[in-house]
């Protein structure tokens, strides 16, 4: 298993002034898996993703991608290294068209015209809706379409690690199912995904493993099955008693 570790996080502590948001967080992300990052509001999930992608710097700890130190790299350089973060609230450039957004997704990849076309077609296959909206201003998309665009844009970069922060937030149930289905599809296309979700049960259904964060601490860590079966998870997060 050691060889398959793509991202290695050790003893990561992050604070906002006096607020300690992450306390010695410790986990591995294994190549090809979906790892669900669960926890209540304010548990530190977004903080963890921001720290991984470079928006925040930790007080202590290490982050390694393919064994090399990520903390030495700027946010841009981490994106070039294949760490693509779809932030909370989607992070669409609302002043640009759908096409320009997708194009910016491929910034780190200097695709040839043919490769670019092929990648774009792959995104359209995942989200046919985007193809119809190509010339439209991204600000005029519905919330669901914006989420599709955010994921599609991330896919343009051929991410090595995909960090998804609550992709199902604010979507209708049918669309949530669709987004989870897409995430599974991305995994089958070879992506490694760290998925932050409030829909814990649905996330664990498509996920391989899960981490439960509680006020900045890793409370529980294990296979999706274990977490789904755990008494504590069921009580506090799955609402199944």
């Amino acid at each position: 298993m050691g060889n398959n570790v793509l991202l290695e996080v050790r003893d990561l502590s992050v604070r906002y002034g006096a607020v300690q948001a992450l306390k010695s967080v410790h986990f591995d992300l294994i190549k090809g898996e979906i790892l669900c990052l669960l926890g209540a509001n304010g548990a530190g999930k977004t903080t963890l993703l921001k720290t991984l992608s470079g928006g925040l710097s930790p007080d202590s700890g290490t982050i390694r991608l393919h064994g090399s130190n990520l903390l030495a790299l700027s946010t841009e350089a981490r994106a070039r290294a294949g760490m693509i973060h779809v932030p909370e609230g989607r992070g669409i450039f609302l002043n640009l068209s759908v096409e320009e957004n997708l194009d910016l997704g491929a910034w780190t990849k200097r695709y040839t015209k043919t490769d670019y076309r092929a990648k774009l077609d792959e995104v359209f296959e995942l989200f046919p809706r985007l193809k119809e909206r190509l010339a439209q201003n991204a600000g005029t998309l519905s919330g669901g379409e914006q989420q599709m665009l955010a994921i599609g844009r991330a896919w343009m970069a051929e991410p090595e690690v995909l960090l998804l922060d609550e992709p199902s937030l604010g979507l209708a149930p049918k669309l949530i199912d669709k987004i989870f289905e897409i995430i599974s599809t991305l995994q089958s296309k070879g992506a490694t995904i760290l998925l932050v979700e409030q829909n814990a049960e649905q996330a664990l259904t498509i996920g391989n493993r899960g981490i439960l964060l509680e006020t900045g601490l890793v409370r529980m860590q294990g296979s999706a099955k274990e977490l789904l079966a755990s008494e504590e998870m069921r009580k506090s997060y799955l609402g199944l008693a």
């Binding site: 992608s53 470079g54 928006g55 700027s74 946010t75 841009e76 350089a77 994106a79 070039r80 693509i84 973060h85 932030p87 992070g91 450039f93 609302l94 002043n95 640009l96 320009e100 910016l104 997704g105 910034w107 780190t108 844009r153 970069a157």
Partner: peptide, 14 residues
Amino acid sequence: RAVSFNRDLASLLG
């Protein structure tokens, strides 16, 4: 234009 919309977001894309 991406940087001018949101610099942090632009960095996330490299």
